Computed example of a mutant assay.
Amino acid sequence: MTTEKHDTDAAARQDPAGPERLEFESDRGASRSTWLAALLVLLIVGWMGSGFILPSEPEETPVSRADPEPVAVAVTTSTAQSVTQFFQAEGQALPDRDTSLRAETSGDVTEVLVTKGEDVTAGQVIARLNSSSNEADARRAAEALVQAQREFDNAQALLERGVATQDRVTEARAALATAEAQVTQTEQAAEALTITAPFDGRIETLDLDAGEFVSVGADVGRLVDITPLTVAIQVPQQSLTRLEVGQPATVRFITGEEREGTVTFVGTSAASETRTFLAEIEVPNADGVIPAGISAEVIIPTGQVTAHFTSPSVVSLDTEGALGVKTVNADNIVEFYPIQVVKAQIDGIWVTGLPETVDVITVGQGFVNAGEVVAPAAQEMSGE
């Protein structure tokens, strides 16, 4: 502390005027630095405002892609042919005639002349009832008729001689008519005592024994006629117009028998439960080999139609669910045609809805759609 004070005093003695004052003049270097800093700030602000804060990625050059190759499909040329169209249905064989045998009067059975299962002819006696009461009634009616006839003759003779009146003749005529009606009634009752077959047929059931009493109207048996047979089928509404009386038909019975028949009836009123129409086919059965009640398949040719034969594997569905076939036209473009199956066989189907000649896609149809361009290759396909 003493040393510093000593140095100060010495300096004062050396410079009697005292310490110098520091003065600054204008510094050009400092001014230049200010302008450089301002310019640098402006450059940074401009650079940031231009949006190039980060270097942008180079734009990708679009890559050109080649069009896809057409799908390869196999096709076969199909030409329409004339084919017979058939209506096919399942049915049941029925007897041509089937009736119940009934007693027309009451009485005791005296004899039964046939047995169940026996073939009978029209008018053949099946059974007889006791006729004792009827015979007595017949004798009384005959005597009453003789007496009425005598009285009428007398009244008529007296009227001609002027002794009797016209009223007496009229009364005698009425009594005669009553006696004649009584005789007719007893004759009919006598006929009712005999049960006969109304037509040729077979006794299917017979509930009748000698000595038993039967009441008027009681069922005593059943008579059926299976020569010919009648096969009944049900026809859908859409197929009704294809059938008509007189058409030939092939009938295949479940027993293995096959017979040719004829359509004899086509109904005009649909069943309320099924909306189908009854049709009947008459089948000859003179030998009686085919029994009634068995199942049968009926095939009826209904005309000619122009159709294509193809395999079921080429059939497909469009986006709306319609059944159809995909084809290729002359420009190799896929086309879809809705079809209708008109006949089915073991080896293929016959369909309508296609042009007369067409290239049908047989392989690859599941991978292409209508309107697409394809590369078709010919393929052979057998058919009838």
Rank of each mutant, 00 (worst) to 15 (best):
R102Q: 12
T76P: 02
A197S: 06
G324C: 05
V45P: 01
E180Y: 05
D200Y: 02
A177E: 15
A292Y: 07
A37K: 13
Y337T: 07
V120G: 01
T178P: 01
R139L: 14
L39T: 15
F265W: 06
A93H: 04
V120I: 10
A164Q: 06
Q188P: 02
Q247E: 05
A270T: 06
I339W: 01
F265Q: 10
E111R: 13
T205N: 08
T165L: 00
T34K: 15
V235F: 02
A122K: 14
E135S: 07
D167C: 00
E372C: 09
A189C: 02
T79Q: 11
L145D: 05
K343M: 03
L39E: 07
G371Y: 06
V169N: 02
T255C: 08
L354P: 02
D167L: 12
V83W: 05
I226W: 01
P355C: 08
E111F: 01
E60L: 15
A174P: 03
D225E: 12
I294P: 00
F52W: 09
G256A: 09
L317M: 10
V75T: 14
T2M: 07
A377H: 11
G303E: 07
V289R: 10
P312T: 09
L176H: 05
I361G: 01
Q365H: 14
R128A: 03
I349P: 02
L206K: 03
P228H: 06
E135N: 09
T310H: 03
L223W: 05
L22T: 12
T352Y: 13
I254R: 12
E204G: 00
P62E: 13
L278N: 03
E180T: 10
F309A: 09
T84M: 12
A378N: 14
R139P: 01
V283P: 02
F336D: 01
G288F: 00
V45M: 11
R259S: 07
V216W: 06
E135L: 14
L42P: 00
D15Q: 13
F199T: 03
E297Y: 05
Q237R: 12
T170Y: 08
H6Y: 12
L94D: 05
G293Y: 06
Q340H: 06
S26P: 13
T2R: 14
R13W: 11
L129I: 02
G324V: 03
E104W: 09
I294L: 08
T121I: 08
L206R: 05
L176K: 11
F87P: 01
V263W: 01
I233S: 00
I333P: 00
G246Q: 12
E171R: 15
Q149F: 01
G246V: 15
T357F: 05
T79R: 09
D209L: 11
T196M: 11
A144D: 11
T61K: 14
T352N: 10
A377P: 00
R222N: 11
E90K: 13
Q92R: 10
E160I: 02
R173I: 07
T264G: 10
T3Y: 09
V289L: 09
T352V: 15
L145H: 07
L43H: 08
V220R: 04
I299D: 07
E335K: 15
R202G: 01
V169E: 07
G91I: 10
